[in-house]
């Protein structure tokens, strides 16, 4: 209704509601409320978890939408659980349109069924969120591992059964995920692997120097909820800096997670 009276400042049409659904689903278990910063280049999101040891950074480029129009920079403070509730009302193949006015109270979501003439429309109340924004520099990582996202998810889940944290060791021989817990210990080692038939199963390790770091598995498992967004995941490691877990999306959009390594008590 609001949208009818005045032309919205933001209007972003997503061919598949599924994308936003999956993104929000992956983030909502890490962050409760966050700002969606909209400007003419797209929709960006940066937020930290409650403990401030992990950070999620999402960028949905304007090219991911068709069309995308954002006349003014606006921040949409949304509770992700609420957003998820509304997004669940959309079918995966629905066309999703995000609309917001200038200085908005609500964000308007319209789902259009691709098969029938069904249109559903929802408004979500916005909130003022005071979040600090961190500047994340482009970093040359010592080790960059690209692997199937399902593989990474499986490793994390398997090792989670044994321990709370995992040591990731990248050497020229391969990458080793190892852990030890009360019941014993376990390790999964991956080597570089090229699968010509199924390139999505490739494991690629780019290494400038060996790296060994320990991370909390609970957080990694949480990141893996984004596995459905992309076939492959990129792990970037350097000593003493946060691990970057990146899911690359179509048209240069991405979903990145950063996690601080565990220092001092390596198990």
């Amino acid at each position: 209704m609001n949208a009818d009276q005045r032309p919205p400042v933001l209007e972003a049409r997503l061919e598949q509601a599924n994308l936003l659904k999956k993104v929000v689903d992956a983030i909502k278990d890490l962050v409760q409320d966050c700002n969606f910063d909209c400007n003419d280049s797209g929709v960006a999101l940066q937020a930290m978890d409650n403990s401030h040891v992990a950070l999620v950074s999402m960028m949905l480029k304007a090219e991911s939408f068709s069309p995308f129009r954002c006349d003014r920079n606006i921040a949409l403070g949304i509770n992700l659980t609420s957003l998820m509730k509304v997004l669940r009302c959309a079918q995966n193949e629905d066309i999703l349109t995000l609309k917001a006015e200038d200085a908005p109270d609500v964000v308007n979501l319209v789902f259009e069924s691709s098969e029938s003439d069904r249109i559903s429309e929802y408004d979500i109340k916005l909130m003022d969120i005071d979040q600090e924004h961190l500047g994340i520099p482009e970093t040359e990582y010592a080790a960059t591992i690209t692997m199937p996202s399902a593989e990474f998810q499986r490793i994390c889940r398997d090792l989670m059964a044994l321990s709370e944290s995992v040591a990731i060791e990248a050497t020229k021989d391969g990458v080793k995920f190892s852990c030890s817990g009360d019941i014993g210990n376990g390790a999964v080692t991956l080597r570089s692997h090229q699968n010509v038939d199924k390139p999505e199963l490739n494991v690629d390790i780019a290494l400038s120097e060996p790296v060994a770091l320990t991370f909390s598995l609970k957080y990694l498992v949480n990141f893996c909820k984004a596995s459905g967004l992309s076939n492959s995941v990129k792990l970037c490691l350097s000593n003493e800096v946060p691990l970057l877990v990146e899911y690359t999306l179509a048209s240069n959009s991405f979903l990145r997670f950063y996690l601080a390594p565990k220092i001092g008590d390596e198990e």
């Binding site: 401030h52 520099p137 909390s216 946060p242």
Partner: peptide
């Protein structure tokens, strides 16, 4: 989650 030994993100990334 036990975040002992994990630094805050703001320690790595400046504001």
């Amino acid at each position: 989650v036990d975040t002992k030994g994990m630094k805050k993100m703001s320690d790595f990334f400046g504001k």
